[in-house]
Amino acid sequence: MRNKNKNTFPRPGTTVFIALTWLLFQATVVFADSASEKAQMLINEMSRASHDLNYDGVLVYRCANQMNTMRIIHKAGGEGEHERLVSLTGSAREVIRDGNTVRCFFPENKAVMVEKSHAGKLISSYLPDPIERIADHYHFEIATQDRVAGRNAWVVNIIPGDNLRYGYQLWVDQDTRLMLKSELKNSDGITLEQIMFTQLEVLEQIPDSLLKPTITGADYTWYETTAKSKMEVQNSDIRWIVTWMPDGFTMSEYGKQSMSMSQVPVDHMVFTDGLAMVSIFIEKLTRDAQSAEGPSTMGGINTYAVLTGGYQVTAVGEVPMTTVRLMANSVKPRD
């Protein structure tokens, strides 16, 4: 019988793996307006393809000085999307997505983390919302052409309109419109994170057997978290407010989530502009609880923690340090 636990989840050594789970041949120069329109069209087509196509591929994820190789299998269908992500290097971890439910299997801890989230995605979490959502805060251009995983690709730049968010460079398959490669860029153009397919096959059908985990989790401890979309959240549910955030950011989810080293579930809010995402965790500190303050960075993921009124507030996201610092410092109890 599996043991259910909703308090703490042991996650040593899992940061890079989770980060992946919670985003050339020179082309002919074109005028800016037409290039921007073509780039926006490609991004919309890429977002649709990531949901509508069946594919099986191997990708490499680089973050800071760490690199992981993974296999991803995606099945589209009228009953929702299904995905399986398998780590091919390091610990034999797996992530299974069935619709909006995501299960993360950690054999080194004999643990499974289950999250029910409206934003439940694996590789497609690196893809933007429809272009209308992000067009006011980013500029778009087709930079050039390239080849990735043996496929011809357009290279699309997504350039932020301010210094409060990062830029992106996307390689879009000219045939299927799937994303073949993605790089997260800071304001100096330095690559902070990279996802790249080394093999990719688009299929008519995906057998259900390919989507089943090799780990049953029968003797594992199961940790469950839940989240509500903004539409489901009642005002009475929200105990905290974020009084500052960059233009275009809105709260997309609110809920309770288990965290390592915490004896009670913490308040968890997710904010997004349709592309960048910031999570804010608010934890009541107990007498023997470990606390942290200040900044930390891993690749493109920045974290900033502050203490306020017996609570620890932690903001984490793939945005510049200034953004998470200002958001963390702006969290206040709701009147």
Rank of each mutant, 00 (worst) to 15 (best):
R239I: 01
S258E: 04
V270P: 02
V266P: 06
M251W: 03
R239T: 04
A305Q: 08
D247R: 07
V156W: 09
C104W: 05
R11A: 14
R11E: 11
E132D: 13
G310V: 03
V270S: 09
D162Y: 03
F25W: 00
I96N: 05
G120N: 09
G77T: 05
G120T: 03
V278P: 04
E141H: 06
L164G: 05
P130N: 10
R103Q: 10
K4I: 15
A292V: 10
Y223R: 01
L24H: 10
I195H: 00
I43M: 15
E108K: 06
I72L: 15
E132I: 07
P107L: 08
Q66P: 00
R133V: 13
E283A: 13
V264F: 10
P207K: 07
L307A: 05
K38H: 09
T198P: 01
S252G: 10
L326P: 00
T308Y: 04
V60F: 02
M259H: 09
V148S: 05
L307I: 12
S36E: 14
K116H: 11
N163E: 13
R2K: 11
W22F: 09
K110C: 07
N68I: 12
A153F: 02
L211Q: 07
V95R: 02
G90V: 02
D335V: 13
T101Y: 00
V242I: 13
S296P: 01
R165N: 08
P160V: 07
G80L: 04
P213L: 06
D98R: 14
T69Y: 08
M179G: 10
K212A: 06
A328P: 04
R239W: 02
E201H: 08
M259F: 15
N235F: 07
Q194H: 01
P107W: 10
L59F: 15
R103E: 07
G248S: 06
K116Y: 02
D129C: 04
V155T: 07
R147N: 06
S229K: 01
R147Y: 00
M196C: 11
A289E: 14
L275G: 09
D237V: 05
M46E: 01
M67C: 09
A328G: 11
R71C: 03
D33T: 06
L20R: 12
P213M: 04
N186S: 05
T216I: 02
Q169K: 15
D208M: 10
R62Y: 02
F105Y: 15
F106T: 03
L88E: 13
K181G: 03
K4T: 13
V242H: 00
N65F: 08
M327C: 10
N109M: 13
A92Y: 02
F25D: 14
S87H: 11
F9H: 05
G167Y: 12
T214E: 13
G161H: 06
A153S: 14
M321I: 14
A305C: 12
P107R: 05
V30R: 13
T308W: 00
E115H: 01
T69C: 09
M269H: 05
N100V: 08
A64G: 07
I96L: 12
G90Q: 05
V148I: 15
G300D: 07
T216W: 04
G294W: 04
Q312F: 03
K181T: 03
S262P: 00
T322E: 15
W154A: 13
L211W: 03
C63T: 14
T214A: 11
K121P: 02
S229V: 03
R151P: 03
N100T: 13
V95M: 09
